[in-house]
Design a protein around this nucleic acid. Structure first.
Length: 298
DNA sequence: TGCAGAAGACCTTTTACGTCA
DNA sequence: GATGACGTAAAAGGTCTTCTG
């Protein structure tokens, strides 16, 4: 079983100016959050892209039916992992790793004395003194498919790992915790890159739509100005006094065209303008046109 | 209470290796 | 077999947050 790229749930938020570090904790209102869930990939191009703003956040997105994945990891070892292709089986898990910690930050307060130990582990795991390899050259080791599958599953569950989860996963996969950590870092980077590409494409489309809308409105303004400069044209227009106003919404009703059989193409228009859905004299505020409406208009 | 420093987590960028056409 | 493109594991260097004295 191999997880294809198309199967991967992808999601990240694109936040503007602020601090990118705040993304995770963000209830940042300026964040653009899109989901690339496999089954709904087509909806990205569908009518209402702004629905994506309301999509669920990471945890919600990836909390699938196997919400208890981590429990499963601990409780039942996967059969297919028995014959796993371990690139480098860690001889033992470091003592300090065995100690395990809970959450990144809360663990610090409860075990401040372990900092130096953790740091040394971190340093060694960065290859500064990787005695397991013998030499200092970085060995690029491809993860097996099974390992990738498990990592992907775990990533869907949480896109970040606390030390305990990292340890558990590393032990389960026969990898070093540092490798798991790196894999998650790279995975997050890939996800973000992918999402950025999608966002870019989407914003391009928004831009195109807005350009068209802008051009259309400018044309309308031009025509209305021309109309204003030729008062005799008013003679051909329905006087405002004949209009009826809805008492509830205060919108002015536009009388139907003389001929009910007239097709839109034969409907008389003013100076070639397309029929207006609202009366220019109406005092009532224009209906709020959402950005979504603008985008989906064209 | 405010501050400086340490430690850790995470991000972005770069490097280097494995795979494939 | 050599080569270049591509994907990705790993590392480097930076920022930010939290904690401690």
């Amino acid at each position: 079983m191999v997880v294809q790229k198309e199967d991967l749930g992808l999601s990240l938020s694109l936040s503007f100016p602020g601090n990118h570090k705040n993304i995770k904790a963000s209830n940042c209102t300026t964040s653009l959050q899109l989901n690339l869930m496999p089954s709904s990939a087509s909806t990205l191009t569908s009518t209402s892209p702004f629905n994506l703003f309301h999509n669920s956040s990471w945890p919600e997105t990836f909390l699938s039916s196997d919400r208890s994945l981590e429990t499963c990891i601990v409780m039942e070892p996967n059969p297919f992992l028995k014959g796993i292709d371990v690139n480098r089986l860690p001889a033992t898990v470091d003592a300090e790793e065995e100690a395990g910690t809970s959450s990144p930050n809360s663990s610090i307060s409860s075990m401040s004395g372990k900092r130096s130990e953790n740091e040394s582990e971190r340093a060694s795991s960065r290859g500064m003194s990787d005695e397991e390899d013998g030499d200092n050259s970085r060995k690029k080791l491809r993860l097996s498919k099974d390992q990738s599958v498990v990592l992907e599953q775990s990533f869907r569950e949480h896109n970040t790992l606390n030390p305990k989860q990292k340890l558990t996963l590393a032990r389960r996969l026969g990898l070093r915790p540092r490798q798991v950590e790196v894999w998650f870092q790279n995975r997050r980077a890939r996800t973000k890159l992918k999402q950025t590409e999608v966002n870019c494409e989407y914003l391009k489309r928004c831009s195109e739509s807005l350009k068209k809308e802008n051009m259309r409105l400018q044309k309308e303004v031009k025509e209305l100005r021309a109309l204003k400069l030729s008062p005799h044209m008013y003679m051909h227009m329905t006087p405002p006094t004949t209009l009826t106003m809805c008492p509830s919404c205060e919108r002015v009703d536009v009388p139907p065209p003389p001929s009910t059989t007239a097709t839109p193409s034969t409907t008389p228009t003013l100076m070639g303008l397309r029929p207006m859905l609202f009366n220019p004299w109406a005092v009532a505020p224009l209906p709020h046109r959402t950005f979504e409406a603008l985008v989906t208009r064209s």
